[in-house]
Nucleic acid binder design. Structure first.
Lengths: 128, 128
DNA sequence: CGGGATCCAACTTGATACTG
DNA sequence: CAGTATCAAGTTGGATCCCG
């Protein structure tokens, strides 16, 4: 009897599928960071968000926001002022991602010192 | 007094920086999934990993594994057999990411049904 | 101000073929 | 088996201009 496939329990398969689905929603270089800012800071306007998320181009921010909105993670509100102002905020569904955001934030804070000491590839970008 | 900057508490800044650092380590479309497989399934060979992580190309897998190794998240072991076989497994540091992987897996499992019902953009890719 | 349209450069990814 | 080389295709970023 040939055994050419790795056996995986149903439980593991479900977990992995969960990770895959989550990653799909958060796909793109910036989505997680955008959500983090909306979560930790709260409702923000387009230009504020652009300033907060360092390095992102307007075009890219616009695209990522649209995708997040399509997936119902954020809500876009346009105010009929002059000139127009637009707010972005998390939906309840988006808020539910806080478990992931918090975990990532805590992991990053916990290992920041280690990363810096180890001189891993990340250092140049991690130093503030 | 003009207030043109959003005020952010130090605590939030640290959290956001944590998220950013973490994202930097997990940058790339596949790293989180690769780590998930190594975490839930355990040590694996190159080709097994390629089969598990559906859709990834050899070249990309190779590249991502190298980056993960550089950041000390995984360990590469080459066995001097014929033909050569190579194992990949998480380091202790890599294992510490389990908090994030678990959280993402649980979030994904919890909202999978909602996603499917809502018919969000993700559906086509999420259905198994 | 909040974008969208366009063009261009740079980087990433994927498919296929190939090697020790 | 574990990659590498090559080329094609897609994605991203920047700059600029435009509109309401």
């Amino acid at each position: 009897m040939k055994k050419d496939k790795i056996e995986i329990s149903i439980k593991c398969q479900n977990h992995i599928r969960g990770v895959r689905d989550t990653m799909y929603l958060l796909d793109g270089k910036w989505k997680t960071l955008i959500i983090s800012h909306l979560y930790y800071i709260g409702k923000m306007r387009f230009m504020d968000l652009k300033r907060q998320v360092e390095g992102i181009a307007s075009k890219t921010l616009s695209k990522e926001l649209k995708e997040l909105e399509m997936n119902n993670l954020i809500k876009r509100t346009q105010n009929n002022t002059m000139p127009v102002s637009v707010d972005y905020e998390l939906t309840c569904f988006g808020e539910s991602l806080h478990t992931i955001i918090d975990t990532m934030g805590e992991w990053g804070m916990k290992y920041r010192k280690d990363l810096l000491q180890k001189g891993s590839k990340v250092v140049a970008e991690v130093v503030d």
